[in-house]
Deep mutational scan, measured.
Amino acid sequence: KLNEKEKELCQMVRLVPGAYLEYKSALLNECNKQGGLRLAQARALIKIDVNKTRKIYDFLIREGYI
């Protein structure tokens, strides 16, 4: 299910792929509902370490998901 970049992200932030996909889905759904997504909203949405949230958020922006 994951592409190579997503696999690298999961290894870097030490997330299991299932958890990453869950977080990605939640962030994309919220982004679609709101018409955009700020980091503060992402942090409130997924209750994990803020540094991990930041890396996931930055990755999703860089890859054009949000």
Rank of each mutant, 00 (worst) to 15 (best):
K5Y: 02
K1Q: 12
I61V: 14
D58N: 13
I48K: 10
K24A: 00
Y23Q: 00
K55W: 06
K33W: 04
G36N: 07
L27F: 05
P17R: 03
R14V: 02
F59S: 02
L9Q: 01
V13R: 03
E6Q: 00
Y57F: 11
N3A: 05
C31V: 08
E30C: 10
F59V: 01
E6F: 10
L28D: 02
R38K: 14
S25M: 12
Y65R: 06
I48Y: 11
L60F: 11
K5Q: 10
I48G: 12
L15K: 00
E30G: 09
V13P: 04
I48C: 14
E8T: 08
L9F: 15
I61Q: 12
Q11S: 14
Q34F: 11
L27C: 04
A44Y: 06
K5R: 12
L27P: 00
E30Y: 12
L28W: 08
D58S: 06
E6L: 04
D58W: 04
D58R: 05
L60T: 03
G36P: 07
G35A: 05
K55E: 12
I61G: 06
R14Y: 05
A40L: 04
E63Q: 04
L39Q: 03
M12P: 01
L45D: 08
G35S: 06
Y57W: 08
G64A: 04
Q41Y: 04
K55S: 11
T53S: 10
I56V: 08
N29T: 12
G18R: 14
L60M: 13
Q34P: 07
V13G: 00
K24N: 00
G35P: 06
I56F: 02
N3Y: 00
K52P: 10
G36V: 07
A40D: 15
V13C: 14
E30S: 08
L15D: 04
P17E: 08
N51R: 13
K33N: 10
I48M: 13
G35K: 07
F59N: 00
L60K: 03
I56C: 01
I61F: 09
L9N: 02
L9Y: 04
Q11H: 10
S25E: 14
Y57Q: 04
R43A: 15
I48A: 13
A42S: 04
M12A: 13
L21R: 04
N29G: 10
V16L: 13
I61A: 10
L9R: 00
I61T: 11
V16T: 15
C10R: 01
R43V: 15
A19K: 15
K24L: 02
V13L: 15
E4V: 08
Q34M: 12
A19I: 06
R14A: 10
Y57T: 05
G35L: 05
A44Q: 14
I66M: 13
L28I: 15
E63S: 07
I56R: 03
E22I: 04
Q41N: 08
A42F: 00
C31I: 07
N32Q: 13
N3F: 03
C31G: 07
A40W: 10
M12K: 14
Q41M: 06
L21E: 04
E22V: 07
K1C: 05
N32S: 13
V13H: 09
L37C: 06
R62Y: 05
A44I: 03
V16E: 15
R43D: 10
A44C: 10
A26I: 15
A44R: 12
Q41R: 12
E6W: 06
R43W: 07
Y65I: 14
Q34L: 14
Y23M: 12
L9W: 01
L28V: 15
Q11N: 13
E8K: 11
Q11K: 15
L2D: 02
Y57G: 04
K33Q: 11
R38Q: 13
A26R: 13
R43T: 14
G35E: 09
L39G: 06
D49R: 02
L15V: 09
G36S: 10
Q41E: 14
D58A: 05
A26L: 14
C31A: 14
I56N: 02
L9T: 01
Y65M: 14
L45I: 13
I66E: 06
A42D: 06
N32E: 13
I56E: 01
Y65D: 13
Y65V: 15
G18V: 08
E4N: 12
Y57N: 07
L2R: 01
D49W: 09
C31D: 06
D49E: 10
D49M: 10
K1D: 13
I46Q: 06
Y57C: 05
R38D: 15
G18C: 11
M12Y: 11
L28H: 02
D58P: 00
L28F: 06
Q34W: 10
G18S: 15
F59P: 00
L2H: 05
L2T: 04
L39S: 06
I46F: 07
N29K: 13
G35V: 03
A42P: 03
L27R: 02
R62E: 13
R14L: 02
R43E: 15
L9M: 08
K55C: 12
Q41D: 15
L27N: 00
N3P: 03
M12C: 11
Y23K: 03
A40V: 09
N3V: 05
I66S: 04
K47A: 12
L21F: 04
Y23R: 03
V13Q: 06
K55I: 12
C31W: 09
V13E: 12
N3S: 15
P17Y: 02
